[in-house]
Amino acid sequence: ELREAFRLYDKEGNGYISTDVMREILAELDETLSSEDLDAMIDEIDADGSGTVDFEEFMGVMT
């Protein structure tokens, strides 16, 4: 189920989504998050600083 959700956002099928897209997902899930909260969450999610979120990083957030 998580893989299907990931595929919805990984429109190009390249195995990752951008941190911008991940930020939008988080904002949709919790509309009360401030910009600073979102920045901090993205920094934590994208631990390797690649600017992308792969499936493993995505799973870590969603579980």
Rank of each mutant, 00 (worst) to 15 (best):
residue 9 Y to N: 04
residue 38 L to I: 12
residue 31 E to S: 14
residue 29 L to R: 13
residue 36 E to M: 09
residue 61 V to Q: 04
residue 39 D to L: 06
residue 41 M to R: 08
residue 52 T to G: 05
residue 22 M to C: 04
residue 35 S to F: 07
residue 25 I to Y: 05
residue 5 A to F: 15
residue 60 G to P: 03
residue 5 A to H: 10
residue 14 N to L: 14
residue 8 L to C: 15
residue 30 D to W: 14
residue 35 S to M: 11
residue 61 V to I: 13
residue 37 D to C: 12
residue 31 E to N: 14
residue 48 D to V: 06
residue 60 G to C: 14
residue 39 D to M: 07
residue 61 V to N: 03
residue 17 I to C: 02
residue 14 N to W: 07
residue 17 I to Q: 00
residue 8 L to P: 04
residue 38 L to V: 08
residue 17 I to R: 01
residue 18 S to G: 08
residue 55 F to N: 01
residue 34 S to D: 06
residue 45 I to K: 01
residue 36 E to W: 11
residue 47 A to W: 12
residue 6 F to Q: 02
residue 40 A to E: 08
residue 31 E to C: 11
residue 54 D to P: 06
residue 22 M to V: 07
residue 14 N to K: 14
residue 62 M to A: 04
residue 4 E to C: 15
residue 14 N to A: 08
residue 51 G to K: 06
residue 58 F to A: 02
residue 45 I to F: 06
residue 51 G to N: 06
residue 47 A to G: 09
residue 2 L to A: 06
residue 43 D to F: 13
residue 56 E to V: 10
residue 2 L to R: 02
residue 53 V to K: 00
residue 20 D to V: 14
residue 62 M to D: 01
residue 50 S to E: 05
residue 59 M to C: 09
residue 35 S to T: 11
residue 9 Y to G: 02
residue 23 R to V: 01
residue 50 S to M: 06
residue 2 L to N: 03
residue 2 L to V: 05
residue 23 R to L: 03
residue 1 E to N: 14
residue 46 D to Y: 03
residue 6 F to M: 03
residue 16 Y to V: 05
residue 48 D to W: 06
residue 36 E to F: 11
residue 4 E to G: 04
residue 18 S to N: 05
residue 22 M to E: 00
residue 19 T to Y: 13
residue 21 V to E: 08
residue 8 L to D: 05
residue 14 N to Y: 09
residue 18 S to Y: 06
residue 44 E to Y: 12
residue 47 A to Y: 09
residue 27 A to D: 02
residue 12 E to L: 09
residue 49 G to L: 06
residue 47 A to M: 09
residue 34 S to N: 08
residue 58 F to T: 01
residue 33 L to D: 01
residue 9 Y to F: 09
residue 56 E to C: 11
residue 10 D to V: 04
residue 7 R to S: 12
residue 26 L to W: 04
residue 13 G to D: 07
residue 7 R to D: 11
residue 28 E to P: 01
residue 43 D to M: 15
residue 48 D to N: 11
residue 5 A to E: 06
residue 42 I to R: 01
residue 3 R to F: 13
residue 20 D to F: 12
residue 15 G to Q: 02
residue 3 R to I: 12
residue 1 E to G: 13
residue 29 L to Q: 07
residue 28 E to R: 15
residue 21 V to M: 13
residue 59 M to I: 13
residue 13 G to H: 05
residue 23 R to M: 02
residue 57 E to I: 12
residue 49 G to K: 12
residue 46 D to F: 04
residue 35 S to N: 12
residue 63 T to C: 13
residue 59 M to H: 06
residue 59 M to E: 07
residue 11 K to V: 13
residue 21 V to L: 14
residue 58 F to C: 03
residue 2 L to T: 03
residue 40 A to R: 14
residue 26 L to P: 00
residue 62 M to Y: 09
residue 38 L to M: 06
residue 6 F to L: 03
residue 26 L to E: 00
residue 51 G to L: 04
residue 40 A to M: 10
residue 51 G to A: 04
residue 50 S to H: 06
residue 56 E to S: 10
residue 63 T to N: 10
residue 28 E to S: 15
residue 60 G to I: 15
residue 31 E to H: 14
residue 52 T to F: 08
residue 48 D to S: 08
residue 23 R to C: 01
residue 30 D to C: 12
residue 16 Y to G: 01
residue 55 F to L: 09
residue 62 M to W: 11
residue 57 E to R: 15
residue 1 E to F: 15
residue 43 D to E: 12
residue 23 R to G: 01
residue 10 D to Y: 06
residue 37 D to H: 07
residue 13 G to F: 04
residue 49 G to D: 06
residue 45 I to E: 00
residue 2 L to K: 02
residue 14 N to G: 04
residue 31 E to T: 13
residue 24 E to H: 13
residue 52 T to K: 09
residue 56 E to P: 06
residue 22 M to L: 12
residue 58 F to Q: 00
residue 36 E to I: 08
residue 48 D to G: 07
residue 33 L to W: 11
residue 18 S to F: 05
residue 24 E to I: 14
residue 62 M to F: 12
residue 3 R to A: 12
residue 55 F to D: 00
residue 37 D to P: 01
residue 38 L to H: 01
residue 52 T to N: 08
residue 63 T to H: 10
residue 63 T to F: 09
residue 60 G to D: 09
residue 32 T to N: 11
residue 9 Y to A: 08
residue 36 E to S: 11
residue 38 L to C: 02
residue 4 E to I: 07
residue 37 D to M: 12
residue 16 Y to E: 02
residue 1 E to Q: 13
residue 44 E to D: 10
residue 40 A to I: 11
residue 7 R to G: 09
residue 18 S to T: 12
residue 39 D to G: 04
residue 30 D to I: 11
residue 41 M to H: 03
residue 32 T to Y: 08
residue 19 T to D: 02
residue 59 M to Q: 09
residue 15 G to A: 03
residue 3 R to S: 07
residue 51 G to C: 05
residue 36 E to A: 12
residue 22 M to Q: 00
residue 4 E to T: 06
residue 56 E to D: 11
residue 43 D to T: 12
residue 11 K to W: 11
residue 15 G to V: 03
residue 50 S to P: 02
residue 7 R to W: 10
residue 46 D to W: 03
residue 42 I to E: 01
residue 2 L to E: 04
residue 44 E to K: 13
residue 50 S to L: 06
residue 37 D to E: 13
residue 12 E to M: 08
residue 30 D to Y: 14
residue 14 N to S: 08
residue 29 L to V: 07
residue 33 L to A: 05
residue 34 S to G: 06
residue 19 T to I: 14
residue 53 V to Q: 00
residue 28 E to K: 15
residue 40 A to D: 07
residue 30 D to F: 14
residue 38 L to G: 01
residue 63 T to L: 14
residue 9 Y to S: 03
residue 18 S to W: 04
residue 33 L to F: 06
residue 53 V to W: 04
residue 50 S to F: 05
residue 38 L to T: 02
residue 8 L to Y: 12
residue 28 E to M: 14
residue 43 D to Q: 14
residue 39 D to Y: 05
residue 55 F to Y: 11
residue 54 D to H: 09
residue 38 L to S: 01
residue 26 L to H: 00
residue 35 S to G: 10
residue 3 R to W: 15
residue 38 L to W: 03
residue 42 I to M: 09
residue 10 D to A: 04
residue 44 E to S: 13
residue 4 E to P: 05
residue 25 I to K: 02
residue 59 M to Y: 13
residue 50 S to Q: 05
residue 13 G to K: 06
residue 45 I to S: 02
residue 29 L to W: 14
residue 27 A to S: 11
residue 52 T to H: 09
residue 4 E to M: 07
residue 47 A to T: 11
residue 21 V to H: 10
residue 2 L to C: 15
residue 10 D to R: 00
residue 20 D to N: 13
residue 18 S to I: 04
residue 27 A to N: 06
residue 53 V to I: 15
residue 28 E to T: 13
residue 8 L to S: 12
residue 46 D to T: 04
residue 54 D to Y: 12
residue 26 L to I: 07
residue 48 D to C: 07
residue 26 L to Q: 00
residue 1 E to R: 14
residue 33 L to M: 07
residue 29 L to S: 06
residue 11 K to G: 05
residue 41 M to A: 06
residue 37 D to G: 05
residue 63 T to Q: 11
residue 11 K to E: 07
residue 56 E to T: 10
residue 63 T to S: 12
residue 53 V to D: 00
residue 16 Y to H: 05
residue 36 E to K: 11
residue 21 V to A: 14
residue 63 T to G: 11
residue 54 D to G: 13
residue 9 Y to C: 12
residue 42 I to P: 00
residue 34 S to F: 04
residue 27 A to P: 01
residue 46 D to C: 04
residue 60 G to H: 15
residue 5 A to I: 15
residue 15 G to F: 03
residue 21 V to C: 12
residue 7 R to A: 13
residue 42 I to N: 01
residue 31 E to A: 14
residue 43 D to A: 14
residue 56 E to Q: 11
residue 16 Y to F: 11
residue 24 E to F: 14
residue 30 D to K: 07
residue 56 E to L: 11
residue 48 D to K: 09
residue 35 S to Q: 13
residue 28 E to C: 14
residue 43 D to H: 13
residue 21 V to F: 07
residue 24 E to L: 15
residue 27 A to V: 09
residue 56 E to F: 12
residue 36 E to P: 05
residue 60 G to S: 15
residue 35 S to C: 09
residue 49 G to I: 03
residue 55 F to W: 10
residue 29 L to C: 13
residue 30 D to P: 02
residue 28 E to W: 11
residue 45 I to R: 02
residue 34 S to Y: 03
residue 3 R to C: 15
residue 40 A to N: 10
residue 50 S to N: 09
residue 5 A to Q: 14
residue 37 D to F: 06
residue 21 V to W: 05
residue 4 E to L: 08
residue 52 T to D: 04
residue 8 L to F: 13
residue 7 R to C: 14
residue 23 R to Y: 03
residue 40 A to S: 10
residue 61 V to M: 11
residue 41 M to F: 08
residue 13 G to E: 05
residue 36 E to Y: 10
residue 24 E to M: 15
residue 16 Y to D: 01
residue 29 L to G: 05
residue 54 D to R: 10
residue 25 I to F: 08
residue 19 T to G: 03
residue 32 T to Q: 08
residue 19 T to L: 14
residue 29 L to H: 10
residue 45 I to Y: 05
residue 38 L to F: 03
residue 62 M to Q: 03
residue 55 F to I: 08
residue 37 D to K: 09
residue 9 Y to R: 07
residue 58 F to K: 00
residue 31 E to V: 12
residue 34 S to W: 04
residue 42 I to Y: 01
residue 5 A to D: 05
residue 53 V to G: 01
residue 32 T to V: 04
residue 63 T to A: 12
residue 62 M to P: 02
residue 16 Y to A: 04
residue 37 D to L: 08
residue 25 I to R: 02
residue 14 N to T: 10
residue 26 L to Y: 02
residue 14 N to C: 07
residue 47 A to C: 12
residue 62 M to T: 03
residue 63 T to M: 14
residue 41 M to D: 01
residue 58 F to W: 09
residue 57 E to H: 14
residue 41 M to E: 01
residue 50 S to Y: 05
residue 51 G to V: 01
residue 27 A to W: 10
residue 23 R to K: 10
residue 1 E to Y: 15
residue 17 I to V: 06
residue 15 G to N: 04
residue 5 A to R: 15
residue 4 E to D: 12
residue 53 V to C: 04
residue 37 D to S: 08
residue 3 R to H: 10
residue 17 I to F: 04
residue 53 V to T: 01
residue 16 Y to T: 05
residue 6 F to I: 02
residue 47 A to D: 05
residue 31 E to P: 15
residue 19 T to R: 11
residue 1 E to K: 14
residue 10 D to Q: 02
residue 52 T to S: 07
